[in-house]
Amino acid sequence: MRADLDIIQDWIPAGSRVLDLGCGNGELLAWLAEHKGVSGYGLEIDPDNIAQCVRKGVNVIEQNLDKGLGNFASNSFDVVVMTQSLQALHFPDKVLAEMLRIGKTCIITFPNFAHWRCRWYLASKGRMPVSDFLPYTWYNTPNIHFCTFADFERLCLAQNARLLDRLAVDRDHLHGWASRIWPNLLGEIGIYRISGPSAN
């Protein structure tokens, strides 16, 4: 399984009800169903990914996150997951608010734009960072809303979300000493577990 998903699955209780926003090929949901008795649904818009989900027997719903999540009832899922999609949304703040409304807890992963490599690229070249990990140029990138750990935590604060867990990892999803000491500089990917203000 993808390394970030392996970390996330550990944060999802057995038997819970999960909504996976941007579920890709359904890897996480299929694994959770098989190993932890988790039931759930994945939202996806890529036809190939959807076909793979169907083949795996994952409950995949073709739905664009940018068009909202109003069709999901408040507090109707134990966990709402969104991996590596936050930065590609038109309204990340609205989706985050919706996630907090729908899920008792939310797990979100996203690339940290304040990682030292990004900072160095921008500072030294004066151009938008391009890397193996984020290989797009500014005009064709699907990642239109990059943020840093500090930015994200500010948004959480603004929405009265509670920060339950945070893990800063490198591109291999290793949680080494560096990303522990100075996450916003040395962590490449953030994995957050948050909940709404009213959740207990």
């Binding site: 989900c53 409950n59 995949v60 073709e62 069709n71």
Partner: peptide
């Protein structure tokens, strides 16, 4: 069709939806 899908999700049934 989404009305059907939303109701199935609310009723906790297995469903795939393709548009």
């Amino acid at each position: 069709s989404r009305e059907i899908v939303d109701a199935l999700i609310a009723a906790r049934k297995n469903v795939c939806y393709l548009e």
